[in-house]
């Protein structure tokens, strides 16, 4: 793998890392498997592309994207809590609806950002670094800020209520918390992060495409699990950093796989979804298989 490919993978890892933090918030903290992200990532990208190409600041684009993502997440939360639709199905419904909405926002299925000022250009101009170095650095900083903000939030009164809602909803209801509102807010916050990540992905790749969100949830889960396995999840702070770094490891692993060349067989980008799915299955079942092996050995 070339150095260029490596910095590219690290950049992607940090950009998508903000999405992974959102997935961590729903999947691990709220215990709410949320597939909305497959729609809210391109939602953020679409809004970012439209805002930037109409001549506004790329930073404003990120903020607006996050706001729209929050609304999308709220819709899923409301479908689940108020209308009693199963969480998975509720999130799939929002995801499907977002497909149409994203095309409406852009007016077409994709929008190019070539030649437009992105956050990377502005940061490179400000720091004087080459764009290939400025991008991973900027996104790394933003990823770390996202981790710190989320860490701070989860230690506030409200954040602790979010944690408790995922951990023991009956207990926290008896302590006077409206779990419906917490779920609506939590899924909203998660999708705000995912959409913000989408806005940055579009700026990093130079285009927004309505299909760019396919498989976001799987990549997010894979990153969360890789992070937990490699860096551990003893405390909330550690688990958050593990999720961000898990995203980087995931993207580097994919870059490595793509650079592999086994004679006639070589991995193509279209194989990535299969590899990711296998990776997630492996990561999800590994702890159980390990336990079983240890159990057998203990009784042999």
């Amino acid at each position: 793998m070339t150095l260029y490919a490596l910095t590219g993978a690290v950049e992607q890892g940090f950009v998508y890392g903000i999405m992974v933090l959102g997935v961590y918030l729903t999947f691990r903290v709220l215990d709410f498997p949320d597939l909305t992200v497959d729609g809210s990532l391109p939602l953020g990208a679409a809004i970012s592309a439209v805002v930037i190409s109409s001549g506004h600041s790329p930073w404003l684009a990120c903020v607006l994207a996050a706001g729209a993502g929050f609304l999308a997440g709220m819709v899923t939360g409301i479908l689940n809590t108020k209308l009693k639709i199963l969480h998975l199905l509720a999130s799939i419904l929002t995801m499907i609806a977002l497909y149409s909405i994203n095309i409406r926002i852009m007016g077409r299925p994709n929008t190019s950002l070539l030649g437009q000022q992105t956050v990377v250009d502005q940061f490179a101009g400000l720091s004087g670094l080459a764009p290939s170095l400025a991008a991973p650095l900027l996104f790394g900083i933003m990823g770390c800020i996202a981790v710190l903000v989320l860490f701070w939030f989860l230690r506030t009164e409200l954040g602790m209520a979010v944690l408790a809602t995922g951990d023991n909803p009956r207990m926290i209801t008896a302590q006077g918390v409206n779990t419906h509102n917490v779920i609506i807010f939590g899924v909203g916050l998660s999708n705000a992060m995912v959409a913000c990540s989408g806005a940055l992905v579009a700026q990093s790749q130079g285009a927004a495409d309505v299909n760019m969100g396919v498989g976001t949830i799987v990549a997010g889960l894979a990153s969360v699990i890789i992070g937990e396995t490699v860096f551990g999840d003893r405390s909330v702070g550690r688990a958050l950093f593990a999720a961000l770094l898990g995203s980087v490891l995931y993207r580097v692993a994919i870059a490595l796989a793509l650079s592999m060349d086994l004679g006639i067989f070589s991995v193509t980008p279209s194989d990535l979804k299969l590899i990711t799915a296998l990776l997630v299955v492996l990561a999800l079942t590994a702890p159980r298989i390990k336990k079983r092996l240890l159990f057998k050995r203990g009784h042999a």
């Binding site: 939030f153 230690r155 506030t156 009164e157 409200l158 954040g159 602790m160 302590q175 006077g176």
Partner: peptide, 11 residues
Amino acid sequence: RRGKRRGLKRG
């Protein structure tokens, strides 16, 4: 904090 508002103060 039972029965009280939960905000962004330290938990």
